Simulated assay, not measured.
Amino acid sequence: MKRVVVGLSGGVDSFYTAYLLKERGYEVIPVFFRLTQKASPEKAQKAAELLGLKLSVIDLTDQFQKEVIDYFVRYYRKGLTPNPCAVCNRKIKLNYLYLLMKEFGADFIATGHYARVVFSKEWGKHLVLRGKDRRKEQSYFLSLVEQRVFERLLLPLGEFTKDEVIKRAKAIGFPFESESQDICFIEGDYVSFVEQFVKPPPGLFVLKDGTVVGRHKGYHRYTVGQRRGLGISYGKPLYVVEIDAENNRVILGGKEDVLKSTVYVWNVNWHLEYEKVKELKGLQVQVRYRSRPVPVESVEYLKNGFYYVKLAAKVDAPAPGQVCAFYSGDLLLGGGEITKQGEG
C-alpha cells in the first residue's frame, strides 16, 4: 500500500483530499502545521477523527515567522507587494511535507490545491496544470515550488469544482462552514498587522512629473493599480503607479500609466529549462492570482537572474514584489518576482 502525507488544515479542501486518497487505497498520514502561536489543530483533529486517522501536529512557528511573516513585513517596508501564499508553499508547506515524506517513509505528499499534476511524456517530467475549476484554480500559487516536488505531489482536487467538493464533503459528514479568504496569519486588515512592526509616516501624493496633489497616510496602505480610497479630488481618476518608499512618496497617474506592455521578472523558478520555454508558442504570463493571463511576445534573459518580458497585449498594474507566473495553455512553466513594471 502506498503511503501519502497529507497537509490537513481542518478546512473542507484538505479534508476531502484526505478522504479521496483514503478511498483510493492509500495509507493516509495527516499532518497539521502550526504556523502561529494562535493556530489551533482542533478542526484538523476533528477532521482526522472523522476519517479514522491519527493526526500529527508539527510546530513550524519559528520557520513561518522567518520565511513568511518577516518577508511580508520587509516587503511592505520597501514599498513592495508581497505574495505570502506563493512563498509559503515553496518555503514552508510543500517543503516540509516533502521532508516529512522521507521521515515517515511515505511515497507521496498531497494538498488541497485546485490544480493538477501530470507526467508529461513530451518533457519527461511531472508538471502542473491549471485546475478544472477556473474560478478557484490555484496553480499560480505553485509557480515558485521546485519541480522536483511535483514528482511526489498528489492534487486530487484539480479534477473537481469547489462546489462539488463542498457538496461531497457535507454528504460524508464534514461540518462545512464558510471559509475566510484572508491571509491566514492576519486577523483583521493587513494594514493594522504591518503597523505592529513598521509604520511609515504620512507623505506626499505626487504625479509622475512631481506635482503634489495631496498627502497619503503611509505608503504601506497602498498598492500599485489602486484607485479607490486615495481621498483625492482631481479632474480624472487617479491610480497608484509606483510606491517610492525611499522618498516616502506615492506616485499617481491615469489608467494609461498602469497599463504595461513589458515587465521585468527576477529569480524565475523554471519547471522547464529556460531555453525550451522561450521557444514555446502561445506563452502567457499571469501577474496576479485573479488576473487574466496575457500573451507573451518574447522572454529575454538579461543578467543576474533578471528577465525582460515583452507582452503582446498590455497588462493591468503589474506590482513589484508580486509573482509573475508563466504558462503555455494550461501548463504551468514556473514563476518569479516582478521587480519593476517596464514600459507602458
Rank of each mutant, 00 (worst) to 15 (best):
R249F: 02
Y327P: 00
L51R: 10
S14C: 08
Y96T: 04
K208N: 09
K66R: 14
L302P: 05
Y308D: 09
G214N: 01
H220L: 05
Q284C: 05
Y289L: 00
R228H: 10
Q226E: 06
F306R: 00
V117Y: 02
K38G: 13
G124E: 07
K278H: 06
W123S: 06
V212G: 07
N267M: 08
I166G: 07
L283V: 01
G334F: 08
L60D: 11
F205W: 12
P201V: 13
C88I: 03
R134H: 15
K281D: 09
V285L: 04
K93V: 01
L127T: 01
V128C: 03
S56I: 14
A39P: 09
K102P: 11
G79R: 00
C85K: 02
F15G: 01
I172N: 14
K132N: 12
V6Q: 06
I183C: 10
T161N: 11
R74Y: 09
P41A: 07
G112T: 05
P82A: 14
N267C: 08
M1F: 01
T36Q: 07
T339F: 07
S56F: 13
V241S: 08
Y114D: 11
G329I: 09
G158P: 11
V73D: 00
Y71W: 07
N304S: 02
R34C: 01
V73R: 04
R134Q: 10
E23R: 15
K281S: 10
T223Y: 01
G203V: 13
L238W: 06
A39I: 12
K167D: 11
F176N: 03
Y96W: 07
V224R: 00
L100R: 07
A115V: 04
A312M: 12
A115Y: 06
P82N: 13
R168Y: 03
V241A: 10
E179I: 11
F326I: 13
Y301M: 03
A313L: 10
L238Q: 05
N267Y: 05
F104E: 12
Y26F: 15
A44R: 04
L97S: 03
P293L: 15
L302G: 09
D209E: 01
D316M: 10
L154S: 00
V241T: 14
L80I: 13
D62E: 15
E137N: 02
E246P: 02
K276W: 11
N267Q: 09
I232S: 10
L283H: 01
Y234N: 05
Q322N: 14
Y289K: 06
V194L: 08
D133R: 08
G321T: 01
V12I: 05
S328K: 14
P202Y: 01
V4L: 09
A18C: 01
N83V: 04
E42I: 15
C324S: 07
G124A: 05
K276F: 13
F32E: 12
E164C: 04
E103T: 15
G188K: 07
Y114R: 08
Y219P: 02
T81Q: 06
E279C: 08
V240H: 04
Q226I: 04
K170L: 14
H126Q: 11
Y71T: 05
T339L: 05
V315S: 12
K121C: 05
L142S: 01
R148Q: 15
N95C: 10
F176Q: 03
T223M: 03
I251C: 09
